[in-house]
Structures are given as structure tokens and as C-alpha cells.
Design a protein around this nucleic acid. Structure first.
Lengths: 345, 345
DNA sequence: TTGTATGCGTTATCAT
DNA sequence: ATGATAACGCATACAA
């Protein structure tokens, strides 16, 4: 009850009612359903409200209706370049619909996702969880409480938008094979990540289908540093091309290669994923465009849909991710693993 | 009263009270002032809460106390690499203090800053505005309504944290001069930006002090592309070193130079600013560490301070930004006469 | 079309 | 140390 001092208390609905000579309900309706009221009373109430400087109290309204006009977006790490565009897309769409957005940074920690979900639940009409690491059962519990949309996490019956980078990875392998590569390395991301699982699987299948050799190098975390650090291991495989889990790792690999005097793409071809900083590398990185901004946008749209209909959409929304060929892929070096000589040499 | 269907209601304080065999007041105290309660009851209540999955309803709490428990952070562009670390820092600090944060993306538009300020005001105890472009008078109006902290905008009497990159820029010039450079270019950012004004001024003064020649190239917007596009103009000056407005521009310049076969730092030294992606470039970029995460953190601290004391702090908080020498600066090429025209000594 | 009465979940005041 | 209960400001069944 103790309001902050030094600031004049805002007028309440009651005071406006009294000033306008109507009931509080009428004042309430003036702001929520004016059409249910006579034109004259609406005007009278509005005038009184104006005079007193009345503005509906959002908090009280939220408590009463359960509708806060807010949504929450929770991401594992704001600073990971994958998320800012996604945040931006979500933000923009929410804003269009008149929603304000809470941003939660889970700090890559499932437990923190859980806490944020709990703390924000009351102030929010729904959630968008980007690449959550939370166990499926927890996810389901939260999804029961509040409308909830996942991004890049595939849990049956809970609304989700999935970026189909798998097809892009397959396309990347095909692209490399077409260039003449026969030995490729996939540098993986977190094994718990849905995205990584998809990409790794797709790479394996594509390799099998095209009959080339595919090695795999694991990174603990998908960072620039991790990419840099796996360079030696990568070179040791003797592969002529590498597909990295994401652009960040690819960028690290490129730096590692550069510092070892291995030219890209002359000696080694590099493919990234996500297209979040690919056009800012030198040479410009061949990558898979994940359209993260669109993902954020679509996720919010899904949420708005649920909010309106009350019914969750159980089939995933898929965003196609296509290969973008830039300047880090080329035919393998002549001397290297250029195996059976078909036609051209 | 009509809650959306299909979703389970969150447990209330009353249910926890019943489950724990205490009154609602006791449950309330368990979460707000546990020290006023006996250790045993606290544990008992906590256990019951845990079991039921109870989390205090912030909205109800806000209605009762008048304190929303939220703050808003407004940035010009989430996707600009300068801001994610700042957001992260702010977020973390707010979270520690039990505050949730709204994120507003103003889309580089002053008018949108104004709108966001207005829309969020009701749900928020205070604001942090990062690098706002809003006119000073508007800023003051909003600052009158709600506690408000600025980052990288110097308006008298309104609380602000300023990243002092000026000193860093001076240090950068000194560093280059010490290496033997006598002709440097400053590639500027938006003229309306406080940061750019500081840096440009500092560069000029340092050049004057050391008696070297300083040219200036203007970029419309501080982007990778802008940096890339000014490369020819840069080379045409005949300078042996360049200080860019920020890392993004510097990275663009490095790409532009690379594609023109100009080795860095052998032919041209490059210095960035902010240190937001400097260690991810190749070669690693010499830059000025702005400590943006700390800036976000300090800004929130300032805000919390105001919230607690009720009195705004009128003197700015300054964050020192120091030069970080990495691998893009070196002595100028021997035949330092890369001048297009002869003549200058 | 408008008024009455009640509930939303919590904190704070006053007791005990 | 703990309980009972009145606000907090608004929206909505239910009446009229």
C-alpha cells in the first residue's frame, strides 16, 4: 500500500466516476467497450477523465482480466549472434499487435529458464522460448499454464517453429561433392541442441547418399574460440572441406586456418550455418540462411494465434533454410584426396 | 474474470497457506521478509510452495505495493553488436535485484523511443535508455515522469553512464604515433551520436597535440558495409593508419582492404572501437574496450539507486575505455610515401 | 444503456 | 512469531 512518495497519486476510476456522475462500471466501459454506452455518457466520462488526467491502471486491469498485454521471450544467451535478429523479429511483430515484450536471458542454464518462466508467468499472456534446453516434462508443465511457443525445439503437441537447416546442410554437402570434395568434416555443436542433432544427422545421411567420407569433430560449446581450437584436429583429418555447426564456429575455424597459413577456399572449403555474420567475414562465408528474424516473427504470430483462438497449434511451423554460396567454397586442391578419376581431371 | 481456457490456473498464496497449515500472511512473509518468521515455518511454507509449484504473482504484488518490479531497457537496435553485451549486463543486474526487464527496440528512430517510453511507463518503475537519439526536451519530460538513466548521452542533471572512449581514442593515436605513423584517418559514425562526437573530438585533439595529420571520412551509418565502401576513399588519402568509429566499421574496412590486396597491418594499421567483435576478426583487431556489459550493469545499478533513494544522481558515472593492442597495428611501411601526391613532410 | 456486487492475488495494518 | 482482514484499481456477471 505504501506508494512511492513525492509523486501525486494517479486518479482512479472511482474519482472519474464521481466527477462524471456515473458509476465506476460505466467509466470502465468507457475505456474498454465504448460502443456499449451512449455517445453522450462516453463524452462526459472522457471529459472528466481528461480533466483529472486519468489513465487506466494497467496493473489493476491485468490482475482483473488476466490479460497483461505482454509476452515474454526467453533466450539462452542474448550475446550469441544467432539471437539478436530473432529478438528483433519477435519484438517487431509483438509491437505491431500492441504487445510489450519481456526479455529473459537464461544464461545457457536450463534451471534459469525454469525460474524465468515462473517469475514472468503472471505478467505475461504467453511465452516464446528460443532453443530451450529445459527437460521436456518441465516444458510441458509450463505449456499447460500459459500459451507457449518453442523455437528450434521439437516437442510433440506443443506449438513450435523449426528452422529446417537439415535440408540446407544436405544441400551444402551436395554442393561440396559437386565441387569434387570426397572427404568432409562436420564440426558439431552442443549434443543437447536440437539444431545440432538435425544438422549432424543430415550431414551423415547426405554423406552416405553421396558416398563420401564424413568425419566429425565435437566442440563443447559453439563459440569462435571452439572453432579456432579445433583447427589442428581438423587439418589432421586430411579433409578438404568442413561444415561447421554455425557461423561463429566457422569464423573461428577460418581464423585458425588463416593463422596457420591455410588459404580458404583454395586449400580448404568452409561452410557455416545460420547466416548471422557470414556476409561480414572475409572471404564472405558460404553458409545456410536460417532466417532467424523470420523465426522470431513467426513464433510471435503463432503465439498471437493461440491467444486469440485459445487452442494451441500442434503441428510445427517450418522455416526453410537454404544454402547461400559465397566465397569460402571451391574445388579441392589438385594434389589432395582427389580419388577415382571419372571424366575431368 | 474470464481466463483463457485450456490452461491450468497457477496456485495462489491461499492454496499454499492451506497446504502448509498457515495463514496467507505467513506465506506472503515467507517470500518478502523471511527473517520475521521462524526458521521452521519458513521451511514448511517453502516446501509446500515448491510442491505446488507456487510462484508469487508479480501483478498482484504490484497492485498492492505500487511497485511493478519491472524496468525497461530501450536500445536503438538489438542487432547492432554493441548492444547485446550491454543488454546482457543490464539484464543480469536487474535480475539479481529481483526486477524483470522489458526490452524495447526503437529501430533507430527517435519517435519510436518516445512511443515506447509512453507505452511502457505504466508497467515499469524506471527506464534505461541506451544511446537515445531523442531530443533533449523530450528526454527531460520523460525523466520527470519516471526515474530514467541514460547510457552514452550526456544531458545535464539526468543520471547517465558515459563510456569514455575519448581517452581510448587518444591512446590509440598515441600508440600509432609511437609506431611511427604521421598520417591517420578517422572514419566517423553518425554525427548525431554522442559517442562519435567524443571520439572525433579526441582524435582531433590528439592529432594536434602530436603534430600529425588527421583526415576524416564520414559514414552515413556505422555498418560493416559503410566501412567496406569507404575503403577506396581511405586508400586515396595515402594515410598509413585508420581509426574507425566502431568495430563494425573497422571490420568492413578490413574486408575492403583484404579484397584489394592491402595487407593489415603491414600496409595499413587499423584500430576499431568498442571491442565487441574485435577478438573475432582476423587478424585480431586492435581496438578500444568499451566494456558495454559493465555499462548496462552500472546503468541498472544507478536506476536501482534512484528507486531506493528517490533522488536522482546528477553527476555522470564514467566508464574508462582503454586501448587494447592486438594485431592490426604495426609500424607504417618503410617507404612511408604511400602518398598520392608528394610534398608533405 | 447503466448500476451493483464481487473477485483477481498480494501486501499491510492491526491484533494476538 | 503469526493470524484476520481491509485495501489496491479494475472488469465483469448479474440486475434493473
Amino acid at each position: 500500500m505504501s506508494k512511492p512518495p513525492h509523486f501525486s497519486r494517479a486518479p482512479t476510476i472511482g474519482e472519474v466516476a464521481q466527477a462524471a456522475g456515473v458509476s465506476r462500471a460505466t467509466v470502465s466501459r468507457t475505456f474498454s467497450q465504448p460502443d456499449r454506452l451512449s455517445e453522450t455518457t462516453v463524452q462526459r466520462v472522457l471529459a472528466a477523465a481528461e480533466r483529472l488526467g486519468y489513465v487506466p491502471n494497467q496493473t489493476a486491469r491485468a490482475l482483473s482480466t488476466g490479460r497483461a498485454g505482454n509476452i515474454a521471450l526467453i533466450v539462452p544467451d542474448v550475446a550469441n549472434p544467432f539471437f539478436p535478429p530473432l529478438i528483433r523479429g519477435a519484438q517487431a511483430r509483438a509491437d505491431e499487435a500492441g504487445y510489450a515484450v519481456f526479455l529473459g536471458d537464461a544464461d545457457e542454464t536450463p534451471a534459469r529458464e525454469d525460474i524465468l518462466l515462473g517469475k514472468l508467468a503472471a505478467q505475461v499472456e504467453g511465452f516464446v522460448l528460443a532453443a530451450p534446453r529445459l527437460p521436456e516434462d518441465r516444458l510441458r508443465i509450463h505449456a499447460k499454464r500459459r500459451p507457449l511457443v518453442l523455437i528450434n525445439r521439437d516437442v510433440a503437441n506443443i506449438p513450435r517453429v523449426l528452422i529446417d537447416t537439415a535440408a540446407g546442410v544436405a544441400a551444402a554437402i551436395d554442393h561440396l561433392v559437386a565441387l569434387g570434395h570426397r572427404h568432409i568434416v562436420y564440426v558439431s555443436g552442443p549434443s543437447a541442441s536440437w539444431s545440432n542433432q538435425q544438422r549432424q544427422l543430415a550431414a551423415g545421411l547426405a554423406a552416405e547418399r553421396t558416398g563420401i567420407r564424413l568425419d566429425r569433430i565435437a566442440t563443447h560449446r559453439p563459440t569462435y574460440l571452439a572453432g579456432q581450437e579445433c583447427t589442428d584436429e581438423l587439418l589432421a583429418t586430411g579433409a578438404t572441406a568442413v561444415v561447421a555447426f554455425d557461423d561463429l564456429v566457422a569464423q573461428g575455424i577460418m581464423a585458425g586456418l588463416a593463422s596457420r597459413g591455410t588459404p580458404v577456399p583454395a586449400s580448404l572449403s568452409v561452410v557455416g550455418c545460420d547466416d548471422v555474420l557470414a556476409e561480414r567475414t572475409y572471404p564472405p562465408l558460404t553458409t545456410i540462411a536460417a532466417h532467424c528474424a523470420e523465426a522470431g516473427q513467426r513464433a510471435v504470430e503463432l503465439l498471437l494465434e493461440m491467444l486469440a483462438s485459445g487452442a494451441p497449434r500442434t503441428t510445427p511451423v517450418t522455416i526453410a533454410a537454404e544454402l547461400v554460396v559465397r566465397a569460402t567454397t571451391a574445388p579441392p586442391p589438385r594434389a589432395a584426396s582427389r580419388r577415382p578419376r571419372g571424366g575431368h581431371g
